[in-house]
Structures are given as C-alpha cells and as structure tokens.
Design a protein around this nucleic acid. Structure first.
Lengths: 344, 344
DNA sequence: TGCCAGCACTCTCTGCGTCAGAGCGCCAAT
DNA sequence: ATTGGCGCTCTGACGCAGAGAGTGCTGGCA
C-alpha cells in the first residue's frame, strides 16, 4: 500500500502504458472500457477504474471532465517516455533515406537540410542549432568589380566563406589589391580577428595610408563573420504544426508558439540546455519553462565534430506525439550530422 | 437610367467609397444607418438603402445575410482601388526608416531584408522574387583545407559568391591549385559555364590529367551557381497572417494558404505576371486564379537594375487591407531595392 | 421626381432547457 | 481481489424563443 503511492505495480504500469499509447494514437480520452479491451489483461472495466483512480491520485493521468476518459498528464508522459517506452530502431532503409536527403555541399546547406529532413519525416517542426565556431582568419581576396567597387571574399578558419561588396574612395589597381591580400594572408593566417585588429593598430603608422581602407573593410567583414557565425537556430516545417489538431484548436496559443519561433534567442537557450547532456533528451509540455510550449514536446539530441558537441538537432511537436518514432529519428539525424561534419 | 447600370453616379461612388473604407476599418458589414452617418451626404438611411440596392445589383457589394449590412465584393474592391482610392505618399521619415532597414551587404541579404521590412511594416507577409541573373564566370579560387580537401570559391559575373568543399583523390600542391585557378581565370573569365564546358571538352586531351578533377569540380560548382541563381521567392512574416481574423477563422483555408507559400513555383508564376507591367499592381481575391488566395490580396511592384526589370516585391494580406497605406509602401520598397541594386 | 418615415419581414445570435451518450465512483456480491 | 450494477455527472447536439440589426417596400410629401 505505502508501496503503491511511490512506485507503480506492474499492472498499473501496463495500464498507464496502454492508456498513453491509445491516447497518442487517437487523441481521444481513454475510458475504462477501451483500456480493458486493449490492455491485454483480462480485467473488467470496473477493476480498471480502480487502478485509473489510483493513477489519477498519483498525478499520472487526469480527466478533462467528469464523464470523459482519462488523458496523460505531463508527469504521465514523463514516466511513459522514461520507463515504459520501447523505441524500435530505424530500418537500414530509413537511415539511408535520411542520409540521402542531407545536402553536404557546405555547412549551411547541411544544417538547413537536416532541419528540413526532420520536419519532413516527422511532419512536425525540425530545428537545428548551427555549430558554434571560433572565428579565425584563414584567407582573404579582393576582387575588382568596377573602378571603385570591390568584392571582398573572406574565408574563416573553419572554411566558411563571407563575401561583401565595398565601395572604396580610391580606385585601387589590381596589383595593389593583390598586395593587400597577400599582406593579410601571409601575416595573419590563423589569427583571430581580435589579434589582427590589435596588431594592425600598433603597426598602423608603418602601414601605407591607402591600404588602411582595405584593412578596415577586411576587419569589418571579419567582425560580421564572427557575429554571423554566432549560434543560431534554423527551423523548418513550422507549417506542419498548423495541421496538428491539438495545437490549432486554440488559435492564440498557436500564435504564441509561432512568436516563440521568431524569437531565436529564447529558443536557443532551451536548446542549449540539451547540448550539455549526451544522447536524446525530451522536454515535455512546459518542462522547459516556456509557456508557449505548454502543449508541445521537444525532442533533441546533440551533434558533434571530432568528439566535441557543437550543436543540437531536434523536433518540436505536440506532446501527443509518437515518441517511439521521433526519438530514433532525431537520434540518427544527430549522428548523421556529426559524421557529415566530421568528414569535412 | 440606362446610364446607371454601367457607370456609377457621383453619389453612388461616394457611398461605395465610404462603405469600403468603413468595412476595411472595422471589418463589420456596413448598414445604411452607418453609411448615412459617415458618408458626409445628408441623406436618410432609407434613401441610402435605395442606392445600396443598386450597388448590390451591379455586383459591387453583397450582404452576408438578409439582415446584415453590406460588404464589398471583389469587384467592389477592384473598383475601389482603381478609381476611388486616394493614396497618400509616404513621409520622408517613413521612407528613411524603410531605407535604413535594408541590409546592403550583398544581394541575398538585401532581398531577404526587403521581404522582412515589408512584412514588418505592413504586418502582412512580405514577398520578393530574387533577381534573375545570367550566370557568367568571373573568378575562381582553390583553397587547401587539408591534404585532400579543398575549398572552392567561385565568383559569378554578377558578383555572387558560391563556395563548396570538395574531396579530391589526389593531394594537390598549392602551386598546382594556383595554376589551375589561373588557367581558368585567364582563359574563361566572362564566359558562360556552358561555353567553358564546351571548350574544356574539346581541349581535354591537351589538359594534364591531374587537372581534370579540379575542372570538373569547378564546372559542377558553376552549374550549382546557375541553378541557385534561378529565380526564387523569399517570403517573410507569414506568421503575421495568423493574426488576421479574416483569414484565421477558417483553419483549412489558412492551411491551404501556407501550403501555397511552400509551393514556390506556383507563387513565382503569379508574381512573374506582375513583372510584365510597370508600377504597382494589385490582385484582389482569386483574381490571380489561385483559390487559396480567395480572401487575400496581393500588392506587387517590379524592381529593376539599370532600367531592366529583374524581379518583383510585394505584400500578401487579407483582401480587407488598408490599400492606401500598403500601395505606397510596396512602391517605395521596389524603388529602394532598385536603387540599392543598381549601385552595386 | 426625389426623398424619407414607418412598418413588416428576415436573418443571426444568444441563452435556455431537454435529451442521449459516455464514463465514473461506489457498493454489494462473489 | 474482482466484478456487475446502479446512480451521478458532464458534454454535445438539438430545438426554440426573444432580442437586435438591417433590409425592402409603401405611401406621403415637397
């Protein structure tokens, strides 16, 4: 007895499990009759009602109103995913399919396609935190577009390419441009932009005056690269959530949710948490502390480059989602992303 | 009499105008009493009812049901925007504000920010068709990332920068890379990729074998650049439309609308039409032939580079929108975009 | 001829009451 | 411990009446 208030006996667990499964499957509150049919146990609805009452007391399930069946509470979902859920790993076929849809041309495309694939395959919103990169300098190029217009191409240590068009006051000759680029490439390759800034500052007097605008532009582009490469969140398939009945019923909540999506910083904070732990993490309902996510769950997994965690992939969907399907998908996607990034 | 069935007399026009204005303002069907108060004419509701009946016969207005006021039909809106609407040009201040929010660093950012600004300022969805560019070759660079990994940087004639990481079979020396780049830069600058492909093919035998992989990669990147630079539609602020009562009432229509947004090709077709004409164009309701846009209007304006139309900007919002505000905004945005693009 | 007050009519919207259906809790019997 | 049975409660659908809004029409007036 005292036992039952803390731990669930096997029967209660089985019933909770089938209840959650049925609710996830058809979204209707589950009554004692249905449970008696589907649990596999040979119990009458009346007996089941007793157990259900206990489960309700313990806070695992609740009824929307007196004469409806029961639905899982967040706590019920939590227990379900933590100890009752049996995930079946993906088929080799599905993995290949997933892998085939990742576009490996460059990091941005890779991240974008990962997010897109997640949303396509789960039909929820896919989300990826872009890898954080320490912005070092590798290579620069000035390309003459017109008399006083240059295209500046900047490659960071991580192989990201930044480009911007700059208007110059003076018309540089091709050889001057090459000279400036060489000067930067030879002296500063491998440095951070902060270092470059310091060293240029101190050597400014020696610097030929007509070079200084080019240097300034280069540094500005560098700063841009740093800020661009700050962590960011890529979301796709938000539209899928419009189709989810659980969410689209109360319009104002839905609006809040989409507003959250626009508010990258908040989202980032949530997803960052998940990158502390290894493996798949699940946030159920408001567990993340964000009210717009009340009826949502977030399934995340960190991905890594060379053994170091650099970002997070995930799926945002209704709390009533098929976890046993979503979890392996997110897991594999993180692994695929890791390996695609490590190769480069 | 016969006159009235074709053209509207002044009184009818004024009443239609105030009716549309009032309906746009508060979204409620407008009754004869309200019209008599707000029209400025000194007429009793009863007289106004006669005119309204005529307007209804002519198809400019309709009533949702017997005892409601009248609302404009698409034809009513059409007449309104064509001949009754008085747009007030934007303040200098507003223009500056608009201009300040455009990010001119490079074409992609410019287009994205234009779309974003439109959505922010109108609180509807902003949409921009990216400029079509003939993809010519300008410059290429091979950068060694690791032994058998190169970063390929490709600059098109229009100054767009493509980059991709390639794995090579052979470990190239820096001087080989420079040689390959030089070879391409000197011989093919200004050519289309099609030309390059032909000429390389014909000279393939003379080409040192170890260079061919680099050439192939360069051409592949070029093709990518061509296809990437194909026209595309950038949408932002779709979420704003969630908040519009006219649209969010019937969920399924809203879904259709968002599906349309995902279906770039269809949207492109619609927006391309608008780039045939000069100046602001307005599509009301389903005039564009797309059912998901039934309750929407699209306000567009083409923008140009060096006097040649290269794309379209626009706003998608509910048919019940404040046209007199949206029209100048779209107009000015197109002009700002034109001038920003022409400068580069 | 144009305008308008008045009136009957129609339609929506709201609230109320009823009724069937679903499901529960409790209790007594096994 | 399990279970059949009974009464209770709540929802959702339905129908109905009354209020409110706005129209169309008619007949009178300048």
């Amino acid at each position: 007895m005292a036992n039952e208030t803390h731990a669930l006996n096997e029967r209660a667990q089985l019933l909770l499990k089938t209840l959650v499964e049925r609710y996830i499957a058809d979204g209707q509150p589950v009554g004692s009759r249905a449970l008696s049919k589907f649990s596999g146990l040979d119990l009458s609805p009346a007996s089941i009602r007793n157990v259900m009452a206990d489960l309700e007391d313990m806070g695992f399930i609740t009824s929307p109103h007196t004469s409806a069946g029961r639905i899982p509470t967040p706590r019920g979902y939590r227990f379900f995913v933590d100890t009752l859920l049996t995930v079946k790993p993906l088929d080799r076929v599905e993995i290949n399919q997933l892998e085939g849809q990742l576009q490996v041309e460059n990091t941005q495309k890779l991240v974008a396609s990962a997010s897109h694939v997640l949303s396509e395959i789960t039909r929820f919103a896919g989300v990826v935190v872009t890898p954080r990169r320490s912005a070092g300098f590798r290579h620069i190029e000035f390309l003459r577009l017109a008399e006083k217009r240059l295209l500046l191409i900047l490659v960071t240590a991580e192989g990201d390419v930044q480009n911007r068009i700059i208007q110059t006051e003076k018309a540089y000759t091709p050889s001057e441009l090459i000279e400036a680029a060489n000067m930067l490439n030879q002296n500063f390759a491998g440095c951070t932009f902060e270092e470059i800034r310091r060293r240029i500052q101190s050597e400014l007097k020696q610097l030929r005056e007509d070079m200084s605008q080019l240097m300034a532009a280069a540094l500005a582009a560098g700063d841009q690269a740093v800020s661009d490469s700050a962590e960011d969140v890529v979301i796709s398939g938000e539209i899928n959530l419009l189709g989810i009945n659980d969410l689209s019923s109360n319009m104002s909540k839905l609006r809040d949710l989409f507003n959250l999506f626009e508010h990258r910083a908040t989202l980032l904070q949530l997803l960052d948490v998940s990158s502390r732990a290894q493996g798949v993490q699940i946030f159920i309902g408001g567990e993340a502390g964000l009210t717009p996510l009340d009826e949502c769950s977030v399934v995340t997994a960190p991905y890594e480059v060379d053994g170091k965690i650099v970002g997070t992939v995930g799926v945002i969907g209704p709390t009533r989602m098929a976890y046993e399907r979503v979890i392996p998908i997110v897991d594999i996607t993180a692994k695929l992303l890791s390996s695609a990034l490590t190769q480069r």
